[in-house]
Computed example of a mutant assay.
Amino acid sequence: MTEISRLFLALITGALVVSFAGGASAKPRQERPKPKSAVESAQTAPAPLPRQFFAEKGVQPLTPELEQALRPKDSFKECDTCPEMVVVPKGSFMMGTPANEPDRFKGEDPIHRVTLARPFAVGRFAVSFDEWDACLADGGCGGNKGDDNGFGRGRMPAQGINFEAAKSYLAWLSKKVGRTYRLPSESEREYFTRAGTTTPFWFGNTVTAQLANYQASTPYGSGPHGPDSKGPAVVDSYAPNPFGLYQVHGNVFEWTEDCFNKRYTEDTPTDGSPWLEGDCHKRILRGGRWNWSANMLRSGYREDSIVDGGGFSFRVVRTLNVQP
C-alpha cells in the first residue's frame, strides 16, 4: 500500500469514529405524548361494572357510606324479601309528546323540561306477588291479597292493587327496612321509562310482541301485527331498558303518586316531585297493560283511575342520600 493510500484510509477511519462517537453521546429525543381528550379517555376507559348489594338474610339497610358511594346501575336489596332496587342517574328530559307522535292523546302536552337533580333508586321490576305475599305474611298490607285473576302468583306482577293498598305496602316496607320507600312521581316514571330516549318507546318508534306484552294485533305506526297476549307475564320477561328496568312498557299499569290533571300547566312540577294538586281522588297510571293496544304503552301516555280502583300494580322508588 502506498503512503498516499495509507493516509487516505486513516482519514476515512477517523471520520467514521467521530461520526459514531457523536451519535453515541447525543441523548435520544423522546416526544412527549399528547394528552388524550376527555372524549378519547371515555372511549378507551372501560366502564365500571354495576355492583350488587343484597341482604342475604333478614334486614340489612345500606349504610350511609355505602349509600353515598352508589353509582348508576348499581343495585341493592335491603332485606331478603325486598324488591331489587336499581340506581337511576340524575338528569333532565323533555316530558310529554310532540304533536306528530302517532296516536297521541290530548293531555300529553305541552312538552316541558323536567330536571332531576339527584340519582334515585327504582324497583328493577314491578312488585311481584312473591313480594306482596311477604308483606301479608308479616302482618302488613291490611290483609289485602290482591287479585291474580287466575294467572297465578309467585313472580307474576302483583295485581288487583288499588292506590291505598299500594301505599300500605310502602308503609310496611319502609318500617321494616328503616328507610323511606314510595311511589314514583309521574315525571320520574316517564324519565326512567324513556331512559334517555325521545322516541315513543325506549326501543324505538314502534313496538312488536317480542319487545313488550300487549294486544299486538293492533299495530303501532308502521309496526307489524302480532298475536294478542293471553295474560300478564312474569316480571323479568323481555329485555330491560338502558337503565336496567324491566317492562316499563306493557304487562301491567303502575300507580304514580300524582293527582289527576287533564294536561300539563304552568303549575306542573319541573323538579321531579309529584303533582299533588287537581283531582286527588284520581291518580295517574303509567306503562300500559297486557290486553291494551300499543298506543297506550308509549312513554308519554297518561291514564288515570280512582284511588280505590283495583286491577293495577306498582313499582317502588327510594330517595337516596347522595350528593347531587
Rank of each mutant, 00 (worst) to 15 (best):
D133G: 08
L136D: 05
G139Y: 12
G139L: 11
G143P: 13
G146F: 03
N149C: 00
G150C: 07
G152C: 11
R153C: 02
G154D: 14
P157W: 08
A158C: 08
G160M: 06
N162A: 08
F163Y: 15
E164H: 11
A166W: 04
A166D: 00
A166V: 11
S168P: 09
Y169K: 06
Y169H: 12
Y169P: 01
A171V: 15
W172P: 04
S174L: 13
K176W: 06
L183C: 13
L183M: 09
E186I: 01
E186S: 03
E186F: 08
E190I: 14
G196I: 05
T198W: 05
T198S: 13
W202Q: 09
W202S: 07
T206D: 13
V207S: 10
T208A: 01
T208W: 06
A209M: 06
Q210R: 14
Q215W: 05
S217Q: 13
Y220R: 01
Y220G: 00
G221R: 01
G223T: 01
P224N: 13
P227M: 07
P227E: 13
P227T: 15
K230M: 10
G231W: 12
V235K: 07
Y238V: 01
G244W: 02
Q247N: 12
Q247V: 05
V248Q: 04
N251G: 08
V252W: 02
W255Q: 04
T256Y: 03
E257Y: 04
F260R: 09
R263N: 12
T268S: 12
P269M: 08
G272K: 01
S273Y: 10
W275S: 14
L276A: 07
